[in-house]
Computed example of a mutant assay.
Amino acid sequence: MYDEQMRAFARDAMARGESLNSISKRLGMSRATLRDWRDRRGRPRYPNDCPRCADGKLDAASYAHLLGLYLGDGCLSKHRREVYALRIACDDAYPRLIDEAADAVLAVHPSRPVHRVQAVGYTSVVAYWKHWPCMFPQHGPGPKHHRRIELEGWQQEIVAEYPELFLRGLFNSDGCRVANWTTRTVAGHLKRYEYPRYMFSNESTDIMHLCQWSLDLLNIPWRMPRPNARSVARREAVTQLDTFIGPKS
């Protein structure tokens, strides 16, 4: 990674008409990097764009959505030169959710491209940045359910402002909208009734509590059929979730 001063030197040289080959040799960087900077000319630049440790701007609504996706199906992995990759694993059965995940990542970190890496049965939405640990301080070694997951104060404020988008991220990753059924005896006859409900499941007790907290913020009733699952089944509650989550597609 190169600092903004080095980028400025390279851009000034290109503006004066110096060849990429000459600049590459003089500044010790690849021509591919220079070509990328040249071709990206005219796009918005974010010289110091981390919202936490610098002066970058944060799309809080998109971040609330992305935080939910990260806690469900996301992870960070460290690469060379202190660069981290954010990966959101998305089931190929739901192309709309893949698009939404890519849009959320791009809105939070708009200065770099978002990649889609195909695997068996799923697509990883991937973006590289040195500052992903600033944005997701919950990052750590091992599975999330093996370590403490707590939101920092600034994250709590964002979730409290956009609980619908946070829940959308959680349910789009580790939740579903399903058709449930039950039977009742009516006038001596057994009748079957079907009704929709939302289910959210996660092995992390802390993430389960965050889901509960967000539902409580919206006064949405829930129950726990088992320790790692939360159900929303009342008709009015399902209708409310349908307004900002809905079936996967």
Rank of each mutant, 00 (worst) to 15 (best):
E4R: 05
H209D: 04
K57E: 13
R11T: 10
V105N: 01
G68E: 08
L165V: 06
V238I: 13
R192V: 12
S231K: 05
D3Y: 10
F9Y: 11
R87Y: 12
S24Q: 02
V83S: 01
A237N: 04
W132R: 04
C211A: 15
R112K: 09
A8H: 12
T243G: 06
W222N: 04
R16Q: 15
I220R: 06
I23W: 06
Y46W: 14
G142M: 02
L217Q: 14
P137M: 10
C176K: 13
S204T: 11
S249N: 12
P47I: 04
P141R: 07
R116K: 15
R226I: 02
M224F: 13
I98D: 02
P247F: 12
A61N: 04
T123M: 00
L58H: 08
L66P: 00
D174Q: 10
R7N: 04
P196D: 11
P44I: 09
Y46K: 00
G246A: 11
G68W: 10
G28L: 14
P137F: 13
L170C: 11
S24G: 05
L241F: 08
G42S: 12
L218M: 15
K130V: 13
G142D: 04
V126W: 14
N48G: 06
L215K: 07
G56R: 07
T243Y: 02
A93P: 00
R234W: 14
L34F: 09
K78R: 09
H145K: 11
D49Y: 07
T243Q: 13
G74H: 08
R26N: 11
F244C: 05
W213I: 04
V108N: 03
L97D: 03
T205W: 14
I149T: 14
L86A: 02
R31T: 12
P225C: 14
F200Y: 15
R45K: 09
S249C: 09
R184N: 11
L34I: 05
E4G: 05
Y70C: 00
F136P: 00
N48R: 15
A104E: 02
L167T: 05
R81Y: 13
L86K: 01
R223F: 15
A101G: 03
A10L: 09
D73T: 09
V83Y: 03
V178L: 12
R52S: 06
D242C: 05
S201Q: 13
P95L: 14
R40F: 07
M208L: 15
Q156C: 11
S30P: 00
C90A: 08
A15I: 08
G153C: 07
F166M: 01
Q155L: 04
R177F: 05
L190C: 07
R31Q: 15
V105E: 00
R177K: 14
R31N: 06
A89N: 14
T205V: 11
E161Y: 01
G56S: 03
T239R: 09
V105S: 02
R96L: 13
R41G: 10
H115F: 15
